[in-house]
Lab assay of single mutants.
Amino acid sequence: MIVFVRFNSSHGFPVEVDSDTSIFQLKEVVAKRQGVPADQLRVIFAGKELRNDWTVQNCDLDQQSIVHIVQRPWRKGQEMNATGGDDPRNAAGGCEREPQSLTRVDLSSSVLPGDSVGLAVILHTDSRKDSPPAGSPAGRSIYNSFYVYCKGPCQRVQPGKLRVQCSTCRQATLTLTQGPSCWDDVLIPNRMSGECQSPHCPGTSAEFFFKCGAHPTSDKETSVALHLIATNSRNITCITCTDVRSPVLVFQCNSRHVICLDCFHLYCVTRLNDRQFVHDPQLGYSLPCVAGCPNSLIKELHHFRILGEEQYNRYQQYGAEECVLQMGGVLCPRPGCGAGLLPEPDQRKVTCEGGNGLGCGFAFCRECKEAYHEGECSAVFEASGTTTQAYRVDERAAEQARWEAASKETIKKTTKPCPRCHVPVEKNGGCMHMKCPQPQCRLEWCWNCGCEWNRVCMGDHWFDV
């Protein structure tokens, strides 16, 4: 396979590697080409510095992935760790964990309700045991953590790749202090920090972006993250068709209702045909949960890209028209025109101005929308079919299609509260000796007794199943 190397943020060049090629071997190839010592090179990928003893497969490097290699003399205490030698983080029983690669970060837990604080980093599902597709590297999971809308060759929703760059020099040479644990960490600028490894760059702020994971991409090709779309790892039924499908869209209502993408497309087109989208002054033209839940309008309007190009163009047109109407304007009634106009409040005669090729020149009556006339309008008909009709959803289907309910059931079956801080902690095999993952707590306690870890627990039921 081919990976592209950008040395000291210059133009990239291809390097041929195998899945079992080590990072140090990659350094040696680059060092020979650039005429520099291999031990002064640092390989940066997806916000993480890659260790010498890791392989291309370990690092989730795919065909035509772009890695950054910078030349920086080692500072005291760094060289041993980078070589894969006596790194205290690798000691058996050590409590410190390697910062998780962005290629394996899962933010789907952050669609849980606000009262489930902490689960994004504490609760991990076991539903990723799908067998890898044919042709994928051994052991590589097909679980997708992110979804994007690819405006490039795909023109559809695709699995996405999370990447990070330095907000100062805009190069992907920043190593994160810690990985993101929720969508806010990724979507809110300057929320996460790190250290830029580019020479002479003092940058410390992280800037995240997404790429389409279905095809090789260049540095400049980015895609918009659709953070309401998630892999259906909890096997929730769709609120409309009641099938279990994946991926799904999880509405931001209190129940976190789930809808499959085909039904979401149908829901949007139906509402669009009836012009029953909601115009929100802050958000724009949007839709609420299909069950009509309060405070559930979709905030990231790129989710409506699921409509496809033709329907999305209609959505944008109707949204612009609705904006004009909300501002007190009118639409030209001549067939084939429909231009938005903003006449004076007491102006009865409205002319669709033909300047700049935008208007048709038609003069019409503001009251009856017919060709302009003197005197009273002959008839004014009330528009028919403008009443909002509820999208029919079966109550039982709505009850079963809740992301929140599956989460709470998982928590109930696989977790116990920490005796000190009461945060839910998952036990997935292993011994009875637990350690609270909350940095402010870190209590060592017994899963069996529910009390602080002691010699009695150690001698009596340390390794009970």
Results as ranks from 00 to 15, higher is better:
residue 4 F to V: 05
residue 11 H to T: 07
residue 16 E to C: 07
residue 18 D to S: 13
residue 19 S to V: 07
residue 27 K to S: 02
residue 29 V to D: 05
residue 39 D to S: 08
residue 41 L to N: 01
residue 46 A to N: 14
residue 46 A to G: 11
residue 56 V to A: 04
residue 69 I to D: 01
residue 71 Q to E: 13
residue 75 R to N: 14
residue 77 G to Q: 12
residue 82 A to G: 07
residue 88 P to H: 06
residue 88 P to W: 08
residue 89 R to A: 14
residue 91 A to L: 12
residue 92 A to F: 12
residue 99 P to D: 15
residue 106 D to M: 06
residue 108 S to F: 06
residue 109 S to N: 12
residue 115 D to M: 05
residue 119 L to C: 14
residue 122 I to A: 15
residue 123 L to W: 11
residue 132 P to D: 13
residue 137 P to V: 13
residue 138 A to H: 09
residue 145 S to A: 13
residue 160 G to A: 15
residue 162 L to E: 00
residue 174 L to H: 03
residue 176 L to K: 02
residue 177 T to G: 12
residue 180 P to F: 00
residue 180 P to D: 02
residue 186 V to D: 01
residue 187 L to Q: 07
residue 195 E to G: 06
residue 196 C to M: 01
residue 198 S to N: 14
residue 205 S to L: 11
residue 206 A to F: 03
residue 210 F to M: 06
residue 211 K to P: 02
residue 213 G to V: 06
residue 219 D to T: 09
residue 225 A to T: 05
residue 226 L to I: 03
residue 227 H to T: 15
residue 228 L to K: 03
residue 231 T to F: 08
residue 231 T to A: 12
residue 237 T to H: 12
residue 242 T to V: 07
residue 247 P to S: 04
residue 247 P to I: 06
residue 249 L to P: 01
residue 253 C to A: 01
residue 257 H to D: 00
residue 264 F to T: 01
residue 266 L to S: 10
residue 272 L to G: 00
residue 275 R to F: 02
residue 279 H to R: 12
residue 280 D to C: 09
residue 283 L to A: 09
residue 283 L to D: 07
residue 286 S to L: 01
residue 288 P to Y: 05
residue 308 G to L: 03
residue 310 E to A: 08
residue 310 E to K: 06
residue 311 Q to P: 04
residue 333 P to Y: 02
residue 335 P to E: 05
residue 335 P to H: 06
residue 338 G to S: 13
residue 346 D to Y: 08
residue 356 N to T: 15
residue 359 G to N: 10
residue 362 F to D: 04
residue 366 R to T: 06
residue 369 K to T: 05
residue 370 E to C: 05
residue 375 G to I: 03
residue 377 C to Y: 02
residue 387 T to F: 09
residue 393 V to N: 05
residue 395 E to D: 12
residue 397 A to I: 11
residue 400 Q to E: 15
residue 401 A to D: 02
residue 404 E to S: 10
residue 407 S to Y: 10
residue 408 K to I: 11
residue 423 V to A: 15
residue 423 V to C: 14
residue 424 P to W: 04
residue 429 G to Q: 15
residue 445 W to L: 03
residue 450 G to E: 02
residue 454 N to D: 04
residue 461 H to S: 00
